[in-house]
C-alpha cells in the first residue's frame, strides 16, 4: 500500500495506543463488573469502603446515658422518652472532646414541630397535644414554663 495511506494510519494507531496507556494508569484496578453484573454493578469496588468511612454524627441515646444518667432517667420516665436527646441538643459527634459543649435548641420553632395543633384526621398528628403558636404565649420560650425532659403538666416550672 502506498505511503499516503500508511502515514495517517500510524497516527491513528498512535492515538489509540496513547488512550489505552492513559486508561491503564487512570482506571483503578478494582474498577469493573461486580456482584450485580454489568448493568447495575459496574463500578470501583473501593468506593463502598469510602462510604463506610464517613463519620457518624448522631450517636443516639446510648451514647448520652452514662454521663447524663439523671437527665436520661428523667426523660425515659416521661412521654418524651421517644425523642432522641440529639433532636434538641444537636449531634453529639465526639462530645465531650469535640464539641465540648452542644448547642441546645430551645426555640419555640423546635417544640411546635410536633405541638403546633393540626387537626388532621387519619394522622397521629391530630391526636397529639398541641397549641396555636400565634395565641399561646407568643414570643416566649416554651421551656420558660415546660420542662422538656418531663413535659407532663406536673412538671410545670
Amino acid at each position: 500500500m502506498s505511503n499516503h495511506v500508511w502515514r495517517p494510519a500510524w497516527v491513528v494507531l498512535g492515538v489509540v495506543a496513547l488512550i489505552l496507556t492513559a486508561r491503564y494508569f487512570y482506571v483503578p484496578s478494582d474498577f469493573g463488573t461486580h456482584e450485580r453484573g454489568f448493568m447495575y454493578g459496574y463500578y470501583r469496588k473501593a468506593s463502598e469502603e469510602d462510604w463506610k468511612k464517613i463519620k457518624v454524627k448522631y450517636r443516639t441515646k446510648d451514647y448520652c446515658k452514662d454521663c447524663h444518667a439523671d437527665k436520661y432517667e428523667m426523660n425515659m420516665a416521661s412521654k418524651h422518652s421517644i425523642i432522641q436527646c440529639e433532636n434538641c441538643h444537636g449531634p453529639a459527634m465526639d462530645h465531650p472532646e469535640n464539641p465540648q459543649k452542644l448547642a441546645i435548641d430551645k426555640s419555640r420553632d423546635l417544640c411546635i414541630r410536633c405541638h403546633a395543633k393540626l387537626n388532621y384526621p387519619s394522622s397521629r398528628r391530630g391526636e397529639l397535644k398541641g397549641i396555636d403558636p400565634d395565641s399561646h404565649n407568643a414570643g416566649m420560650e416554651c421551656s420558660a414554663c415546660h420542662n422538656p425532659h418531663k413535659p407532663s403538666l406536673e412538671g410545670l416550672k
Partner: peptide, 8 residues
Amino acid sequence: HKCIGCGF
C-alpha cells in the same frame, strides 16, 4: 399512620 410531620 405514625408520621406526625415533625421533620426531625
